[in-house]
Design a binder for these strands. Structure first.
Lengths: 210, 210
DNA sequence: GCTTATGGATACTGATACTATCCATCAGAG
DNA sequence: CTCTGATGGATAGTATCAGTATCCATAAGC
């Protein structure tokens, strides 16, 4: 397959494919002569994955690159690969909330983690985001949701169990890793859009004028 | 309060506050003379809300503006205000999946909506995202999750019920609208980070080397 | 042999979210 | 009452991101 056909198959413009090749997101095709390369099915799959992560999950290109490198590196443990995917989903934030709100939020989260016997690294990226979010809700005078943290955590544990079960049926380590990463990232988009649909429906019945 | 104090109170640099004023995200202070304006508590709140939406929920500035305008416009129905928040969370995507995958996904989603008696506009932004996400999962050979759509939908309905209950205790329409919008947007960040924590914990116990 | 496509390199673009600078004015300290 | 530093407003500049565009020598396929 030449680059034009790859472009047609994935609907990604040729210059964009070239860009991904330059950036190292896509492995080079097999060169038969200095300006002739052949691409295969793997390139189509990879390109589709890249676009799904960028377009659907809004993962920055640099993080996509990291994730892909991690997936291609079979010396890395599955746990570390997941860690990278997580980091891709939680960009570094510099949030300001009142120190009191932060303290309350931190305590609440620590409590949650302890009660659920979750084993979480203290520098987990999602930990900071969770604390910041709770603190922001508090600062904005929106405490109601935080009071139901436990209910949220229950639901979220259900998701995780489901995903682990779904994913461990995968035969090979490679496929497993890819499944987990796709599930983690696209799963988030899936849940978010489902939630919006459910909200819209509820909003329509409760608050739609007339 | 002068702009410098506002800056100190919120930890947002003065030039950034000026920028938000220019862009119409923040209402102007009360002018006492051509170069002297006074800001109040409302400005602090507003600024904190803006930063939470931008930093935590990654909502683009232009969308933040739209949401705030909608919140300030009391002729708009709550349902429409929620609609705007939803649109802010679902940027227009141009995704390519195989037509077959799209068809399957569309049918699946229609089925889900019908069975749950959700009332959703056919052009709801989240609808397209959900279909695209399922189609992408299918195209990427990751069908497992989609088979549990119903379980996800159950959990998500729980969220919505919880949020509606939490929010309808608000006395005034204004506060209600703000609560709903904050809950919708920051709630997403909350759920996402909780999910990552749960995943990390599971991953640590299952797959952490040694 | 002629048109079109290709790989590779380099340069340019548009959007986003700020920062920086300038300036005339003004408040408050000394 | 003067001097310093902040302020409102305007305009210009910057960094990052994610591509697009252009050029060129070479190769494919009719």
């Amino acid at each position: 397959m030449r680059i034009g056909e790859l472009s047609k198959a994935t609907d990604v413009p040729v210059p964009t494919i070239k860009y991904y090749l330059r950036e190292g997101l896509l492995p080079a095709g097999e060169l038969s002569s200095p300006n002739q390369a052949a691409y295969g099915e793997a390139h189509i799959r990879r390109l589709r994955l890249i676009r799904a992560l960028i377009d659907l999950a809004q993962v920055p290109l640099a993080q996509v690159k990291e994730i892909l490198e991690s997936l291609d590196d079979d010396t890395e443990s599955l746990h570390d690969q997941i860690g990278r995917a997580h980091r891709a989903l939680t960009p570094p934030r510099r949030v300001t909330t009142t120190p009191e709100a932060r303290a309350t939020a931190t305590a609440r989260v620590q409590d949650l983690i302890q009660k659920r016997r979750w084993s979480v690294e203290p520098d987990a990226p999602a930990l900071a985001t969770l604390i910041d979010t709770l603190a922001a809700m508090e600062t904005l005078g929106q405490t109601n949701l935080a009071d139901h943290l436990d209910t949220y955590a229950d639901a979220v544990e259900t998701f995780t169990k489901l995903e682990v079960a779904a994913v461990t049926t995968n035969p090979t380590r490679d496929q497993l890793a890819e499944s987990v990463v796709i599930g983690t990232i696209l799963g988030e988009t899936l849940i978010a859009s489902l939630r919006l649909l459910s909200q819209e429906s509820t909003s329509a019945t409760l608050w739609k004028p007339h």
